[in-house]
């Protein structure tokens, strides 16, 4: 799924996160941004399903800020709150098409906390421009 086709499908447009906490971390990724899910396997309680780890998707929306369930599960307070995203994946990017029970257009949205996401660079695209843009966003977020 390209960033352009995915962005066209984002719903609803101009979605304002209802669960925004201005005092919490500013989200690192914006709507429509391509992201890769960390390919990690930490012990403990994790809310990131295996089937998206290491996979590339597009930020469908920012849900707001939420206490980190990996901390809450162990009786800690879950702060700092994390930005929570809905990330959209093409099913054809997740599963083998050998026995398709899905269409090539079919997609899935998964809620993922920011700590599990990293920026994705498409090396076939304009790497320098993409990189500079992300650097700016990181700088903005740190401000």
């Amino acid at each position: 799924m390209t960033e352009e086709t995915a962005s066209e499908r984002l719903t609803p447009p101009n979605f304002a996160p209802p669960y925004w906490d201005a005092s919490a971390l500013k989200p690192r990724f914006s709507m429509g941004k391509r992201v890769r899910v960390r390919r990690g396997a930490p012990p403990g309680h994790v809310r990131t399903p295996w089937y998206v780890r290491g996979r590339v998707g597009v930020v469908e929306r920012i849900c707001g800020h939420f206490a980190d369930p990996q901390e809450l599960a162990y009786r800690r307070d879950g702060t700092p709150k994390q930005p929570l995203y809905r990330v959209r994946f093409a099913l054809s990017d997740l599963w083998s098409a050998a026995e398709p029970g899905f269409g090539l257009e079919d997609t899935i949205d998964v809620e993922i906390y920011e700590g599990w996401l990293e920026p994705y660079f498409d090396y076939g695209g304009d790497f320098a421009a993409e990189s500079a843009k992300i650097e700016r966003e990181i700088a903005d977020a740190a401000r």
Partner: peptide, 8 residues
């Protein structure tokens, strides 16, 4: 407890 504690 939290629902996350239950899920753990």
């Amino acid at each position: 407890f939290t629902v996350d504690g239950l899920r753990r």
